[in-house]
Amino acid sequence: MHIAMTYTRLRAEERLLLDAFESAGVRVTPIDLRQVVFDPASLGEWAQYDAVVDRSVSLTASLTVTRILEGLGVRCINRPEAIRVCSDKLDTTIALIRAGVPTPGVRVGISAESAIESVEQIGYPAVLKPTVGSWGRLVARVNDRDAAEAIIEHRETLGSVQQGVFYVQEHIDKPGRDIRVFVVGGEAIAAIVRTSGHWVTNTARGATAAGLEITPALHDLSERAVASVGADVAAVDLLECPNRGLLVNEINHSMEFRNSISTTGVDIPGLVAAHVVRIAEGVRTSQGALA
């Protein structure tokens, strides 16, 4: 068994995963993607790996490496289609709606005029988000039409082409916290609650985390959400809506977990590594059957 772990920055999570593989007696090779030249027509050195865990902090790098490797028949965790859907909030919304998983209401406009109308349909306050982005960056709550017009004009003028897609989400009056559930191999393994005095409850924005019991409802929603995007390993963010109950907000394909191990008491990297090994064993079995 030989696993590769691709990365662009080696953070605590990547170190913890390498340690988890080594503790399990699994050979693992870290690969800095910035040093690699890919040949989409040749498996080359990649033939030696039973599976590749991608841990790139860069979405562009993640999608590039997993598309090439899966094209060559190398099993990646996560797969590029799952990464694509998770990384784009509109694609995630569509996947959740199709799967019948409750999620905040959304309107989408592709011009300043339709963006304003989208906000008006959602009602105030509304949340404007870039379709691609993490750690709460450029997420804005708009409380009235003046603010909406200002933000939309700024995005249209200063933003990238991608920010010409205006994703407007219903604002959920959550109780100063949101919930993150870690799902590995289709099973919710750990949950935390993130609390903040600010309405954006990302730990990257200063929210504090504590362990949370995984209730049957959290199991059900988070596992269905991850199934809807086809991810092997993911973290699901949920909001507690006073009227509609739990809603799935986002799904993260390359989850950060360094601060969630001690708070939950769950060996998250160990369980991720074990699942990767199960996938790799399945790849070996199917390749053996074909040989």
Partner: peptide
């Protein structure tokens, strides 16, 4: 900081967060 060479170990200032970085 970011390790840019391991033998000997060399450190450089880590790059700023880019638009497509995240989870």
């Amino acid at each position: 900081l970011e390790v840019t060479c391991t033998n000997p170990v060399r450190l450089e200032l880590a790059p700023e967060v880019e638009e497509d970085w995240g989870e």
